[in-house]
């Protein structure tokens, strides 16, 4: 547990008036309020710190206690005697600047605050019930995993949560599971669980929403003469008729052969095939001769 400099947190000096403290607290609260900074852990921490600093410094009795014992809270009354023995300055040096913001965990107050002001002070707080904290979790899935709707069991904070992941969920998408967050304060309802999906794509397909994109390489002869080709789709193969003289970069759309549309059962996006015509890397003498013949015909 480290000493917390509440004056520094609020950016006021030790002689600050109640009005200065109130003003500084309100400014910080408006800047770092968790409802104005969703999913920002740093803002949440700063808001907690400001709240705690305000609770101590805006209360005359607590401010007096904090000013008197603040840096020596661990020693409490014994410090009085120690002070008489002029050991104060020695003890003060034990606390380093860098430790000032430690001690804020998941709870509402720092260990320092709990230790110094304990339960007695907290009783003065209102008994209002509040909804619990929202929990955030990340879930990494393969693109193939989200092609179909899947049921999974996740363990969050030691609890198993059965989850249905709808087909077509996107990379970066957040799904809210109601009531699976932190417990409410004073018996209030539970918060929600927010799951952010990270979709890893190791396939040959590129995805944009429910549309898929794929490049198919054609030999020069196939592109010139045309014919049937077999192309892999996401869930099988299709036979495509290639027109003679297919140009490099030609794109064809295979309707309904893309990715499932999120929460639209049975609906699929499209698959776009782009043809990449590859020229021969080596020519035999005979081939070269024939190309020269062709060139003469142009």
């Amino acid at each position: 547990m480290a000493f917390i400099d509440y004056y520094k947190i609020l950016g006021v000096d030790k002689n600050a008036t109640k009005s200065d403290i109130k003003k500084a607290y309100r400014k910080m609260a408006r800047k770092y309020h968790p409802d104005l900074n969703p999913n920002d852990k740093e803002a949440e921490l700063k808001f907690k710190q400001a709240n705690e600093a305000n609770e101590v410094l805006s209360n005359d009795e607590n401010r007096k206690k904090y000013d008197k014992y603040g840096e020596n809270w661990q020693h409490g009354e014994a410090y009085e005697q120690a002070q008489q023995q002029q050991r104060q300055s020695q003890q003060q040096r034990q606390y380093q600047e860098g430790q000032q913001f430690e001690g804020f965990g998941e709870g509402e107050y720092s260990d320092f605050f709990e230790s110094m002001f304990g339960g007695g002070f907290r009783q003065s707080r209102s008994n209002v019930k509040f909804r619990g904290q929202d929990f955030n979790a990340n879930l990494e899935l393969n693109l193939r995993d989200v092609y179909t709707t899947e049921k999974r069991v996740l363990t969050v904070n030691g609890k198993n949560i059965r989850l249905t992941i709808p087909a077509g969920v996107q990379d970066g998408q957040v799904i809210k599971i109601k009531g699976k967050g932190g417990p409410g304060i004073n018996g209030g309802p539970h918060g929600d669980l927010l799951i952010e999906f990270k979709i890893v794509n190791t396939t040959e397909f590129k995805r944009d929403g429910s549309n898929l994109y794929k490049t198919v390489t054609l030999s020069l002869y196939k592109a010139v003469l045309g014919g049937d080709i077999m192309v892999d789709t996401f869930d099988g193969k299709v036979k495509l008729k290639l027109k003679p003289l297919t140009q490099n970069g030609t794109q064809v759309k295979l309707s309904g052969k893309g990715f499932p549309k999120y929460k639209k059962d049975g609906q699929f996006g499209d698959l776009y095939i782009t043809y990449n015509v590859e020229l021969p890397k080596k020519l035999s003498d005979k081939e070269k001769e024939l190309f020269e013949e062709l060139a003469k015909l142009q």
Partner: peptide, 8 residues
């Protein structure tokens, strides 16, 4: 998020 996915 959509733009990010398009860029991919």
């Amino acid at each position: 998020m959509i733009a990010h996915n398009k860029l991919k």
